[in-house]
Simulated scan of single mutants.
Amino acid sequence: MTWRYIATRMNGDGTETFLNFNVPLSNAEVNPVVNGHGGVKGTITPEIASLKTDDGEHIFVPWWTAIYAEEDGHIRGGGILKDYDDEAPKLQLDCIGHTGYLTDTRYTEVKSIERDDPLKVSRHLWEHTQARPHFNIGVEFAGAETSRDMFIGDDNVTPTTTPTKVTPYVLAYYQTHDLAKEFDLLANIAPFEYTMTHEWNTDKTAIRHILHYGYPRLGARRTDLRFVVGENVVEQPRFDIGGDSYASDVIVLGAGEGSKMMRAEDNAANPGRLGRDAVIIDKSITTPTEAKKRAAAERKLLSGTADVTEIQVRQSDHARLGSYSVGDDILIETAPGWSGIREMWVKILGIQIRPESNVTTLQIMRAEKVSK
């Protein structure tokens, strides 16, 4: 595999200017993810003249410079420079994935929504942002175009019935100051999944940034690939079988105080073991719909079954880099252990690529815990 790192300057009008096609990044990490930002990290040492402008300043400027990791012509990930640490002669770069651009970005108008599609509303956040001068980073959309028509801020989670009371979902300059947070809220309400990819345009003169939507999910169950301990999985994965992974009754407490606090519960009808409580407190939850969905999601995660959070995968014919994507379900075959698990379907939530190593780290979760 041949890797190179490309630096561009984002012009704020949807275009980019190429600055350098061979940034000498070492100890690089490339991290595409589902429902998150990911990005690119790495170190440059020593100082190199080609990475400076005519006035002697280096080309790496937060919220202006972007870095892309390309492997044999395929862009495996990218990000916008958020922070750097200048410890001469080292320069450490931390680039956040392009979805992170919405973090701390505000809404500049007022929009009150009672019934709409959360996925469409999430696209509106990008359209609103990129219509502002200097805020266009060229994000395009692909995949699912709709999720479901529902009451965004209703008092009844069933979208086919008319609620007795509707709390509008409001986007406003006086209260909406973090569109990334709003985007994730809408993803949870639908729910839908998303990821950002980057690819060359047809004549390789520009890089496209594509926000892929999946409703109800991204990826697919891959029966053509497998992860096998001793074959392409470097070591036996560590399974979490602790008591903290189980709860039969989940209560979510959101915005408000005392008896007026936003509240929802999700309880197992027959847990098959002793009952256990889990209390989730999240003041960002402001609607009954959101509270109910959060309670159901948390109890699904707290099923008490053994789980695994990551594995180390070596390049092989059964799982080459680029043959699987975030969102995919893939079967793990393991050696016997205390968990008693020999096979498990897992969903890939993130891929941490270290180009200087033949081993890739996958952030994963038991598939049925996140299946839609």
Rank of each mutant, 00 (worst) to 15 (best):
P216Y: 03
Y194M: 01
F192I: 01
P191G: 11
P216A: 00
A255L: 05
R217Q: 14
V228K: 08
G256T: 10
A269K: 12
A190E: 01
G243F: 07
G258A: 08
H209D: 11
N232T: 10
N232P: 13
L218K: 01
E199V: 15
M261T: 15
Q236T: 12
M261N: 15
F239W: 03
T202R: 09
A264T: 00
N267Q: 12
F192Y: 12
H209T: 12
T205Q: 09
N188W: 10
E193P: 06
I207S: 09
L225N: 00
H212D: 12
A247R: 02
R217K: 14
N232E: 05
D244K: 13
Y215K: 02
E235K: 13
Y213M: 07
P216D: 00
R222Y: 04
G254Q: 09
A268H: 08
Y213I: 04
M261R: 15
G230L: 09
L225T: 03
D249M: 10
R238D: 13
D266L: 00
A269N: 10
G214Y: 03
M196T: 06
H198W: 03
L253T: 11
H198Y: 08
W200Q: 07
V234K: 00
T197L: 03
Y213G: 03
A190K: 00
R217P: 06
N270Q: 10
G214R: 01
Y215R: 00
R221Y: 14
W200T: 11
M261D: 15
Y215I: 05
R217F: 11
P216I: 02
G254L: 10
R222D: 01
T202N: 09
Q236D: 14
M262H: 00
F192N: 02
L253M: 13
G243L: 12
V229W: 04
F227S: 04
N270A: 13
H198N: 03
M261W: 14
G243K: 09
A255F: 06
M261V: 15
R222S: 02
F227P: 03
E257H: 07
I207P: 01
R221L: 15
L225F: 03
W200L: 04
M261C: 15
Y194V: 04
A247V: 08
